[in-house]
Each structure stands twice: as structure tokens, then as C-alpha cells.
Design a binder for these strands. Sequence first.
DNA 1: CTACAAGTTGGAGTGCGCTCGAAGTCAAGC
DNA 2: GCTTGACTTCGAGCGCACTCCAACTTGTAG
Lengths: 123, 123
Amino acid sequence: MRIRDVAATTGLSAHTLRWYEKIGLLRSVERDRGGRRLFTQDDLRWLEFIGRLREMDMPVREMVRYAELRERGEQGDATLAARRELLEGHRQRVRERMDRLAACLTHLDDKIAWYRGQEDDHA
Amino acid sequence: MRIRDVAATTGLSAHTLRWYEKIGLLRSVERDRGGRRLFTQDDLRWLEFIGRLREMDMPVREMVRYAELRERGEQGDATLAARRELLEGHRQRVRERMDRLAACLTHLDDKIAWYRGQEDDHA
DNA sequence: CTACAAGTTGGAGTGCGCTCGAAGTCAAGC
DNA sequence: GCTTGACTTCGAGCGCACTCCAACTTGTAG
């Protein structure tokens, strides 16, 4: 797959995909003889995965760290525990975030209910 | 209350409080004869409120819009519906965000479980 | 009266995550 | 062979939400 195909299927821009490679989020992307990037199915799966991490607000720096561990651990399992811990740390943060969102949402619902009350009084 | 007190109780910096005033998020903050800001209990409640909106990732622009409506509606209720709609719109976005977070979290939990499996295989 | 902390203003700078532009290369269609 | 358009690299620019700096004024304590 070439860059525009990946852009189309992931929703990321070609600019962003090149930038991901530059910062080390995408590693060892192949080229054809013209120097154009060729993405594999594995690359797509990886982009899907980091897309979810991003959706959970993982900082790009941390994703790059995960990518590094993944590459270093290609042949062995030396980095398995480190990767799991990184993900667990993030899971914890997401849980806390969701809890805070839920709490704020309760307040917001109260406020909206109050506005409805005001409007009814004047109806 | 002076700016440092508000900074201490809200956790916002004095810089940020001045900036909030500049962009119109805080309106009509009083001054003493030396020109120093004097915040009221109402200001504190307002800061608490917008703190929650911020925690729910409402853009500052939208909070400013809410602040404007609130000021325009001080004497009447002309802006009540508009304010309620603004909040309802944001509530909807927060709900969607939480749903997406929950979905991502499920994937993340699966991934973490997979890592645990790998580590156990090698134990 | 002096020293000094805490405030004031306006404007510049920061970190993040892209996003865009310029200048050049490559390959497929006519 | 020439045009067209998608690609390449490098580096600059942007929007957001602050964050900090410089230069100055104010009010309190010794």
C-alpha cells in the first residue's frame, strides 16, 4: 500500500504518516525503487493500535517509547513486561479520567436540569 | 480575595487568572485603589464551574461564549435557552467521548491480558 | 524613609500534535 | 518524449492553552 491508501483507510493525513515515521512511531517503512513508502498490513494494524492509544490521550512520546520497546523486543521477550507496564500505567490514567468525566457530567446534568426549571417557570 | 488566594484555592496560576480575564472568561473583576484585582465568592464559584467544563475538555472559546451569554442575560432570561443548549451540546460530546474511551479501554485490557499470557508461558 | 514582596500591564515564548509550503523526483498515460 | 500528479525531503507555521518575562507601581513592615 502506498501512502495515500493508508491515509484513506486510517483517516490520518499523508503528512501525519510521514511525521509518524520521522519521530519513530512508524519504524522501518519499506520503499519502492522510486523511494516511495510501501506500507504493510502489519503497519496498518499498528496504526490502528496507536490510533486507539491516541484516542485515550496517550502522549506521542509514550507511544514512541512503546514502539522502541516493541522493536527491541522483536526477537526476544526482554521488553514484554516493560510494554505491559506501560500499557497498565496508561489504563490506570484512563480509568481516572473516566471517573472524573462521570463526576463532572453529573454536575452538568444538574445544571441543565436547573436551566429547564428556569425555562418552565417562565412558560 | 486577592489573586494569590484565588490561585491557591483553585490551583490555577495568577498568570492564568489574569489571562482568563483578558480573554473574557472572567468579567468585571473589581480592583482596589491600587489597581489590584479583588475576587468575590461568585468569581470563585464561576471558576469552579468553568474548571469542570475544562475538565470535560470544553474549548476555551466555548466557555467564553457561555460567559458572554451569562453576562448578557444578567437581568433577563433571554439567554437561558442558549446557555442550556450550549451545555447540552457539550454533554453529548462528553458522553460520546466516554463511550469511545470505554471501547478503547476494552481493547487495552485485552492487550494487557495477552501480555500476561506471554509472560506466563515463559515462567 | 527605605526595602521588599506582591501586584500591575503588554507582549513574547513554550509544548504539543499536527499541518503546510517549497523545491525537487519519479513513473504512468498520451 | 512530455505532461501530470502523486510522491519525496526539509523546515517553517499554526492553534490551543497556557506560561513567562520585563518594566513598572503599590502597600506594608522595620
